Amino acid sequence: MTKVVNYISEAFQELKTNVTWPLWADVQRLTIIVAVFSIIFALLTWGVDTLFGKAIAGFFNIIK
């Protein structure tokens, strides 16, 4: 158990001293960029899904 506590303690110490954290303004800017691209990607996926759904439905209506 001592090894686990020591590992966690050293990990937190490394996060405090050796990691270069981004500025808050950069975090906000990049979060907005990721959110916008996620929404765009979701809309494109929905559009392609709808298009293929209608195409397949039309194909099966032709086959009937």
Rank of each mutant, 00 (worst) to 15 (best):
V36A: 12
G47L: 04
I32Q: 09
I56C: 07
I33S: 02
I33V: 09
A42W: 08
A57L: 11
A42H: 11
F41D: 03
T20R: 11
T17L: 09
L44C: 07
A55D: 01
A25T: 10
A35Y: 02
L44D: 03
N18E: 13
V34S: 10
T45Y: 06
F37M: 14
Q28E: 12
V19W: 08
L23I: 14
A25L: 14
S38Y: 00
W46K: 09
A35L: 10
I40M: 12
G47W: 07
I33A: 09
F37P: 00
V36P: 03
T31W: 06
W21E: 06
I39T: 07
F37L: 15
L23Q: 08
T50S: 13
G47Q: 04
I33P: 00
W46N: 04
G53N: 06
D26F: 01
F37E: 10
R29Y: 05
F37Q: 14
V34M: 05
V19Y: 09
A35P: 04
P22G: 02
L30Y: 13
V48L: 14
L30E: 09
D49R: 14
A57F: 07
V36T: 12
F37R: 14
L43Y: 03
T50F: 15
T50Q: 06
W24Y: 04
A35E: 03
T20H: 10
L51W: 06
I56M: 13
D26E: 11
T20G: 10
T50A: 13
A25M: 13
V48E: 03
I40A: 14
I32H: 05
P22K: 00
D49N: 15
K54N: 04
R29I: 08
D49W: 15
A55P: 08
L30P: 00
L44P: 00
T20P: 03
I40T: 10
W46M: 04
V48F: 09
G53F: 04
V34L: 10
L51Q: 03
F52Q: 04
P22W: 00
T45N: 04
W46C: 05
F37T: 12
T50L: 12
Q28T: 05
T45S: 06
S38D: 06
D26P: 00
I39F: 03
A57R: 06
N18A: 13
F52A: 06
L43H: 02
V19K: 12
A55Y: 13
T20L: 14
L51H: 09
W46H: 01
P22Y: 00
F52H: 06
D26M: 00
V27G: 05
S38Q: 04
T31M: 04
A57D: 10
R29F: 08
G53Q: 08
I39Q: 01
L30F: 13
A55H: 12
I39C: 01
L30M: 14
T50W: 07
R29C: 05
D49P: 02
Q28L: 14
A55Q: 13
F41N: 09
Q28R: 15
V19C: 10
L23T: 07
V27Q: 02
I33T: 10
T50M: 13
T17N: 11
T50N: 11
L43E: 03
F37H: 06
I33F: 07
W21P: 00
K54Q: 12
T50D: 02
G53A: 09
A42L: 13
V36E: 08
G47C: 05
S38R: 00
T31C: 05
V34A: 08
